[in-house]
Simulated assay, not measured.
Amino acid sequence: MSIQWFPGHMHLTRKAIGQRIKDIDVVIELLDARLPASSANPLLAELTEGRPTLKVLNKQDLADPGRTPAWLDWFNARAGTRAIALDASDSAPARRLIEGCRQLAPNRRGMSRPMRVLIVGVPNVGKSTLINTLSAKRQAKTGDEAGITKQEQRIVLEDDFYLWDTPGMLWPRIVVPQSGERLAASGAVGRNAYDEEEVAMALLDYLKQHYAPLLQARYKLELAAPEIAALPDDELLARIARKRGAVMSGGRLNLQKAAEITLTDFRSASLGRVTLETPEEYARWLAAAQQQEAERAERKAEQRKRDERRARKAAE
């Protein structure tokens, strides 16, 4: 399943970041702690020109607490990068962002050298909620739909600390299929860009392998965890439909409704605290995707050569 979503306003955001970054000291990239690598924008490194970056694993209260430390270690091992985890609705840890930025750019202090920070992230990752928490008032619109913020906003957090918020942005081509599935499951992708049943089944495919007891408890499945893990994804979705009353006239199952229920339960953490990837898993997915991309580029190059040969023959 290939999921892509890069609407027009994201092109404008990319241009705006390219202009703004010239005057920025530190970049805060807000990530979803349930899908840390999949929610990290690979376009950002190009746009931010190697600026120091604070990676913030947001929504840590929804993520598997046993997996978050491994992700923090993974990001902290990178040069010019610090990583912290927080829940954006909690005002105390949110203030750690300011200190984290000051550590990355210690010379930016005082009115003569104010700290200038750009905050970026994929849609619906919680940037607006975090900014409202940091500034102690509702300066940014919030919502559960991807793409709420549509233009850049400047917020003063301290006399010498300026924060620029940008609209949520993905990247033009998501090459890791698993990342596209996870971004859609989290609500970072517009609803018209994916099939909810397919995304729900991809989500269930992972959950049944790693969090079967949570599925068992949430949907009152009368199966042992190993039996749940062995179910085909469509059968598991059908069982959820029956348990949650997603049944139409004539006893037909409403799998669309069951998919919506499943995705809502994941997004709200009604299923429990889960993280949909480990550093090791993501490394495997990325390596496979890069191999496929290399093969795709090779096929295109061969096709271009064949086209050129045919064109030369036709011209002779």
Rank of each mutant, 00 (worst) to 15 (best):
I3Y: 08
G8I: 14
I17M: 09
G18E: 11
Q19G: 12
I21H: 03
K22D: 12
D25I: 05
E29I: 09
L30I: 15
R34T: 04
R34L: 03
S39Q: 01
A40F: 05
L54I: 01
N58M: 00
N58V: 00
K59N: 00
D61W: 05
A63S: 07
T68R: 05
A70K: 11
W74M: 01
F75I: 05
R78F: 05
T81V: 15
A83K: 01
A85T: 02
A92G: 10
R95E: 10
R96N: 13
L97A: 04
L97T: 03
Q103P: 03
L104W: 00
M111W: 14
R113N: 14
P114Y: 07
M115P: 07
V120Y: 09
V122K: 08
V125R: 06
G126H: 05
I131L: 09
I131H: 01
T133Q: 06
S135K: 14
S135A: 15
R138G: 09
R138K: 15
G143F: 06
A146H: 06
Q151D: 15
I155S: 09
L157N: 07
D160W: 07
L163K: 04
M169R: 10
P172Q: 13
P172S: 09
P172C: 10
S179C: 11
A185S: 03
G190A: 11
G190V: 04
N192C: 11
E196C: 11
E198V: 14
V199T: 03
A200D: 01
A202C: 06
A202N: 10
L204R: 02
Y206D: 13
L207Y: 04
H210V: 13
A217W: 07
E222P: 01
E235W: 02
L237K: 04
A259F: 07
L271W: 02
L271H: 05
G272I: 04
V274K: 02
E277F: 03
E280W: 04
E281N: 08
R284T: 12
R284L: 14
R284K: 14
W285P: 06
A289H: 08
R304Q: 15
